[in-house]
Design a protein around this nucleic acid. Structure first.
Length: 470
DNA sequence: ATGTAC
């Protein structure tokens, strides 16, 4: 695949046959070299009807279903622009929630083992059913409609949790009718559960602060203990993606749409199929937030019991979502765009009206989960931004699970992490080995490239003290 | 990511 460097950390794939826009990849030369195969997917996305600007990829780009993970694409709704479930991914509304503890790392140290044991017992994880909130069918419908807002209304959290959650805890346009019976069935038993693979709950310590003022506005200071929760919408989101890819695949021909990859199935955003998916996707988005809200409550109970202290929400943001947003394109006026972010995080700039009032001057918190045993980051949206105000989402895999498990045994890895001072509460040795840090790209390099490309700025670096994994 | 292939 041919590409040219436009400036540091920004590469362009020129528009050619079948492409409706160029491709733009933000990366260091090293990260781009590792991701060359995924450029095919950047090019495929550029063929989507109604695409504006470019088919973008973040520095953590890697191979996904249809869209690359790390892909961002916006289509013009009024011009027949499409929505593609593959541009969101199977784990709809996968995202990150960060909370701060009342105590610093030093005072936590003596009780950390008890905290980790408590979290290990309290956090449902792994494949299949299991969740902290057993609810009925009518309650699930209300949760799909109301997200975190419904969970808090039912006593699972405090009002402030909503002001620090993307969209105030719930997106408004969920359409529960578009969530299939099978998706509901799978979702019923999983509210308040981590899932598996790279999802985790970590107790972390702020190791470095890059911007004191912004960190203070986010409630972060050096040595502060935090809890980071990384999970999504479990089987419910997965089933919704499956259902709607199938429906769009069948309907596409009627709209005269052809795509180079079946998993790029799409229809106009403003069509019955497009609206159906967007409504179901919004319901899954609300499920994902409520899921993280319930897990935060479970962690709070453990912290209260073992430390006497609480956990305060910094922010909750998704990195797998499509949204209808207004953006100026090519120097023109604002247009209504369907912005797909798949493994990419929205990063609203300072002054954006959708930010909570107490964060409006500093920009949106962007939460980047690292790999078990490595660092995580807190970033902030910047005034100029790019790619419709998007940035990276994490490290991104470089080895398959099978390859990863061949490099080290679970028991050996656990011993290594514990020797590094990281308490580990895995579900099984095998699942741990599949997530060994060597299986992922260097999150420091990804964040460096994201900042270098002008997509965000660094606020703080967090290192793990303890990790709970599926 | 995922009742890790209907």
């Amino acid at each position: 695949m041919e590409y040219v460097q436009e400036r540091p950390y920004r590469f362009r794939v020129d528009q050619r046959d079948g492409m409706r826009a160029p491709g733009v990849v933000f990366a260091s030369p090293g990260l781009l070299r590792d991701a060359e195969k995924s450029l095919e997917q950047v090019v495929n996305v550029a063929s989507l009807p109604g695409i504006v600007g470019a088919s973008y990829a973040m520095p953590d780009i890697h191979w996904g279903y249809g869209f690359p993970i790390g892909g961002v694409a916006a289509t013009d709704v009024a011009e027949g622009g499409v929505i593609s479930p593959g541009g969101v991914g199977f784990d709809i509304s996968c995202g990150v929630r960060l909370l701060t503890a009342d105590d610093g790392a030093r005072s936590l140290a003596p009780v950390l083992p008890a905290v980790m044991d408590g979290l290990g017992a309290a956090i449902p994880r792994g494949a299949g059913p299991g969740g902290v909130w057993k609810l009925g069918r009518a309650e699930l419908e209300a949760l799909l409609d109301g997200g975190s807002r419904y969970a808090v209304g039912r006593g699972h959290g405090v009002e402030r949790d909503l002001s620090r959650c993307e969209d105030g805890g719930a997106v408004a346009d969920a359409d529960v009718e578009q969530v299939s019976e099978r998706a509901r069935e799978r979702g019923l038993a999983q509210v308040g559960s981590l899932g598996s693979a790279n999802h985790f709950l970590e107790v972390q310590q702020v190791a470095e602060v890059y911007d004191e003022d912004v960190a203070a506005a986010f409630g972060l200071a050096r040595d502060q203990v935090c809890v980071m929760i990384h999970c999504g919408s479990r089987g419910l989101g997965h089933q919704i993606c499956t259902d709607h890819v199938r429906a769009m695949d069948a309907a596409m021909a009627r709209y005269g749409i052809q795509v180079p990859d079946r998993l790029l199935a799409c229809t106009p955003a403003d069509s019955p199929e497009g609206r159906a998916y967007l409504g179901a996707m919004a319901a899954a988005a609300n499920y994902g937030r409520a899921n993280r809200q319930l897990l935060a409550e479970a962690a709070r109970r453990v912290f209260r019991r073992e430390t006497g202290g609480g956990l305060t929400l910094v922010y909750d943001v998704s990195h797998n979502l499509a949204k209808i947003e207004e953006h100026a394109v090519d120097g023109g006026g604002p247009r209504r765009l369907c912005v797909h972010r798949k493994g990419a995080t929205r990063a609203f700039p300072p002054g954006h009206p959708e930010l909570p009032e107490d964060l409006r001057d500093v920009g949106q918190p962007v939460l980047i989960p690292g790999t078990m045993g490595t660092a995580s980051y807190v970033l902030a949206g910047v005034a100029r931004g790019d790619a419709f105000h998007s940035t990276c989402h994490g490290a991104g895999r470089s080895l398959s699970r099978h390859q990863a498990a061949r490099t080290i045994g679970g028991k050996e890895l656990r011993a290594r992490l514990e020797a590094e001072g990281i308490a580990v509460r895995p579900l099984s040795p095998r699942s741990l080995a599949e997530e060994t840090p060597e299986a992922y790209k260097d999150v420091d390099e990804v964040v460096e490239a994201s900042e270098g490309a002008g997509l965000c700025r660094k606020v703080a670096r967090l290192v793990p003290l303890g990790v709970v994994k599926g």
